[in-house]
Design a protein around this nucleic acid. Structure first.
Length: 576
RNA sequence: UGGGGAAUAGUGUAACGGCAGCACGACUGACUCUGGAUCAGUUAGUCUAGGUUCAAAUCCUAGUUCCCCAGCCA
């Protein structure tokens, strides 16, 4: 019996089948650029997170896109931290982001960059724009700037400081850098057009004064560049050919292009695509933070969270997430993916690689009355029917067993195939048994034990006389069972769109009170004892489970990643 | 009432003037020592109204709906 967990599956053979995967509009643009020789066939992308939080499945879409494109076109993809706001960013997030990207199966080698590494260059470029009369130091307060900006339908007013001389601007900007002015007292602004219909071009702020310590540059700077003044130039410095971002930056593209053009530097092309939305969950960092802070989940890596850390702890594999990202497609239409597609992807992967095991979540005691009292047999069980090379293992069988409570009904409805009084079923890899007697607690009427007989001729699970049974049940021998805690997870929210709320409510009203059910006294086959965290397996007939970090050698803890498709559950649901 | 985007089965996504296809979901059936997997099948779509054309999801015109933008956030 093999005890090593299936390592995160980094076999990419299934990731993006060129013969079937549609060519999305971004790859079409790249194909066209390559056809016209725009960058001499060079393709260079980047994944540019701000290190102000943890990555989620939406980031995975972007990661797979950027790294995936680079790989397909024989290009490169940089990991760049957009760390221009020291008040929100921390080293901890950098570390976590790097771990998540790596876990997803991508490697940026030495192409790890930080916008903060470009601060000096950005400063020199700002001076260049000032000299060209394209930027000025503005003394307006934040409120005044807002008042001068105008509205969506009305033009703004020019700042009274807009026409300072180059010399005055140069001197003031230098003094800003030297720390002579307090936070918020001055900004450096691009001089564009206060009447522009695109508000981003109404003399946008390039630098703000922030006497804050930066996680990488320490106290070297007290002026920090804004996103718009940083991103395009960072892309340009890194010779990024295609700068892929999400739809909300469409309005920023004219400014991106303006800066790069005014500076006369290499011009990458910004391309926007629709971010990922998933049913029954939320993706907003701010809202996820509330779930953590208000204690609705145990932390950022709670198995119910859509974070990479949460999915990982839940038992999702990198291959499953990559396959998902490949299947959802890339487009500009805002859309919400059905979470069932994600679940399909993880089942598809785990079905192939996860070893099978028998585990009883809600045990019902079964005594085989005609089985010898002290006998124990070792029966052969197949580790993975999808993978012959996974081999077999032995599972112990004895007189007293546990089966799933759901697998017995005293008064079974028509389509219930499992055990019932007088009915014969198969115990997987073991024997046919017949239920002879139901023992109840005289006080509560609860069924506490089944007394069954077995047919010794059916050892291994087949009847020599060829008779059939309609059901095969999983089971665990009571004498050898290991007790485990199992955590059953369901959707975090009860509504497909948690943000669909009435006036005055917020998404928390749709929190699913049953998103976590903890089962304390589960019985699992002995081979499952001592498996390391993240070990994934299938509990036969129940679902895919993985060992949680809370697990200890004498008390395993499992998380349910996803259930198996359950036809019986569906029949039951319909009957209601 | 400004500007920028987007509308194709329930959900996503192709088709780029020439047979509306694929996946997930749902529903049948076959098979099965997992009511799993697998296999076979069914279901269901071009936002609206005009126009151009032999031919329109695709081009044109008008409209409708949805998303983004008024941070010294990214």
């Amino acid at each position: 019996m093999t005890t090593t967990p299936p390592s995160p599956n980094n076999d990419r053979s299934d990731d993006r089948n060129q013969t079937t995967a549609p060519v999305d509009f971004i790859r079409q643009i790249i194909n066209e650029d390559n056809r016209t020789g725009k960058h001499a066939g060079r393709v260079h992308t980047r994944f540019p997170p701000e290190p102000n939080g943890y990555l989620h499945i939406g980031h995975a879409k972007s990661i797979c896109l950027n790294f995936g494109i680079a790989a397909e076109y024989g290009g490169l993809c940089n990991l760049r931290f957009d760390d221009t706001n020291p008040t929100k960013e921390e080293q901890e997030y950098i570390d976590s982001i790097k771990e998540d990207v790596r876990w997803l199966g991508f490697d940026w080698e030495d192409r790890e960059f930080y916008a903060s590494d470009y601060f000096e260059q950005l400063y020199r470029w700002a001076v260049q724009l000032i000299r060209a009369g394209k930027a000025f130091v503005c003394d307006l307060t934040a409120d005044q700037i807002r008042e001068h900006r105008g509205t969506l339908t009305e033009p703004g007013k020019e700042s009274p400081h807009r026409n300072r001389t180059v010399e005055e601007n140069l001197a003031l900007f230098e003094r800003m850098r030297q720390g002579e002015f307090p936070d918020g007292s001055r900004t450096l602004r691009a001089k564009i057009d206060m009447a522009h219909p695109n508000l981003n071009l109404r003399d946008p702020v390039m630098y703000r004064i922030l006497h804050a310590s930066h996680h990488r540059t320490g106290d070297r700077w007290c002026i920090y560049p804004m996103y718009d003044w940083t991103h395009g130039q960072s892309d340009s410095i890194e010779q990024i050919t295609h700068s892929i971002c999400t739809l909300e930056f469409e309005n920023h593209r004219p400014l991106y292009d303006w800066f790069v053009r005014e500076l006369g530097i290499f011009a990458p092309r910004q391309i926007e695509f629709a971010r990922l939305n998933l049913t029954y969950t939320i993706m907003s960092k701010r809202k996820l933070l509330r779930l953590v802070q208000e204690g609705h989940v145990s932390g950022w890596n709670d198995p119910r969270m859509p974070t990479i850390g949460g999915l990982r702890r839940r038992g999702y594999t990198p291959a499953a997430i990559r396959a998902f990202c490949s299947r959802i497609g890339i487009a500009k239409t805002e859309s919400t993916i059905d979470v069932q597609l994600l679940e399909y992807c993880v089942r598809e992967d785990l079905n192939r690689v996860a070893p099978r095991a028998m585990a009883v979540l809600r045990p019902l005691r079964v005594v085989i009355t005609n089985y010898p009292d002290d006998q124990v047999e070792q029966l052969d069980a197949i580790n993975n029917p999808e993978d012959p090379e996974a081999g077999t293992r032995q599972v112990p069988f004895s007189k007293v067993l546990y089966i799933e409570r759901d697998d017995f009904m005293e008064d079974p409805p028509k389509k219930f195939f499992r055990l019932a009084p007088g009915r014969e079923v198969r115990l997987r890899y073991a024997y046919f048994i017949t239920c002879q007697e139901v023992v109840k607690d005289p006080a509560t009427g609860e069924i506490i034990e089944l007394r069954c007989t077995y047919d010794p001729a059916t050892r291994g699970g087949d009847a020599p006389d060829g008779r059939k049974v309609k059901a095969t049940l999983h089971w665990v021998a009571a004498s050898h069972a290991v007790e485990a805690e199992v955590r059953l997870y369901d959707h975090l929210f009860t509504q497909p769109d948690p943000d669909d709320v009435r006036e005055g409510q917020d998404f928390t009203v749709h929190l699913n009170p049953a998103s976590l059910e903890v089962l304390e006294h589960c019985q699992v086959e002995p081979g499952l004892a001592g498996k390391p965290p993240e070990y994934c397996c299938q509990f036969e007939r129940l679902g895919y489970f993985c060992v949680d970090a809370d697990s200890t050698p004498d008390r395993p803890v499992f998380n349910r990643t996803v259930t198996l498709k359950d036809t019986w559950a569906k029949i039951q649901k319909k009957g209601q």
